[in-house]
């Protein structure tokens, strides 16, 4: 069963006086529970593809479905809700909220959902921090953590809502190879344990071994699967 169905996706955006054709007609299906790596050089359209799948950017044309929901038919509020309840994000630069502690950062999406009580939210956040090996850093703010630790907090934040899909844009780009490897190991482990679909972009061929499916992208087109 496919969790993501993309047909004829194009994305153009203006850059000064010119129009950049970031995606030129992508067709892609991703099965639920897969661990997918989107490979390609810089400027190939990896991040744009992830942004469109993650509903933080709008497609110029084409169809994008998450489960049975067609993204192009949703308004801003519905798209925001979809992001909150069905998607998790891991960013290259971690993007933690600097004024919140590790635990609060992980709790953040659950607090926005307003579905669980405070105790359950705290329990889940702490459990996930334990899972990523940060139980000692619960009260630390992002500025007091190393890059690897921050990215682990980001992974915990992305997983805390039990999303259908976790999108990770170059999650290891700002980390040394050992730390990057540990992060990918965690993602692989979570994928296996939670059956969460992981889609991460990278230009590092060394990380391919962690992926079950590899999608090559070049000049805004799928170059091979």
């Amino acid at each position: 069963m496919n969790i993501i169905e993309i047909r004829g996706l194009t994305k153009d955006y203006p850059l000064g006086k010119t129009i950049v054709h970031a995606l030129r007609g992508i067709d892609l299906s991703i099965a639920k529970g897969d661990l997918v790596s989107v490979m390609g050089p810089s400027g190939s359209g990896k991040t744009t593809l992830l942004n469109v799948i993650g509903c933080i950017d709008l497609a110029t044309a084409g169809s994008v479905k998450i489960g049975d929901r067609e993204l192009t038919a949703l308004d801003d509020k519905q798209v925001t809700d979809l992001r909150l309840h069905r998607l998790g994000f891991i960013f290259q630069t971690f993007n933690l909220i600097p004024v919140l502690t590790s635990t609060e950062n992980v709790e953040f999406p659950l607090l926005l959902q307003k579905r669980l009580d405070r105790k359950e939210i705290r329990r889940r956040a702490e459990k996930l921090l334990d899972d990523v090996g940060l139980s000692e850093y619960r009260r630390n703010r992002p500025s007091e953590l190393s890059g690897g630790q921050r990215q682990r907090v980001a992974i915990a934040r992305a997983l805390v809502t039990h999303p259908d899909i976790v999108l990770a844009d170059e999650p290891t780009a700002n980390l040394d190879s050992a730390t990057g490897a540990s992060i990918l190991e965690i993602m692989k482990e979570m994928n296996a344990r939670e059956q969460t679909t992981f889609l991460f972009s990278t230009h590092d061929k060394n990380v391919l071994k962690y992926a079950r499916t590899v999608v090559n992208i070049k000049d805004g087109l799928i170059d091979g699967n």
């Binding site: 993650g54 925001t80 909150l84 994000f89 960013f91 993007n95 999406p109 926005l112």
Partner: peptide, 15 residues
Amino acid sequence: REIGTIRAIGMQKSS
């Protein structure tokens, strides 16, 4: 970027 992050995670515009 922080605004982009919290919007991406799922915070509504009003919040």
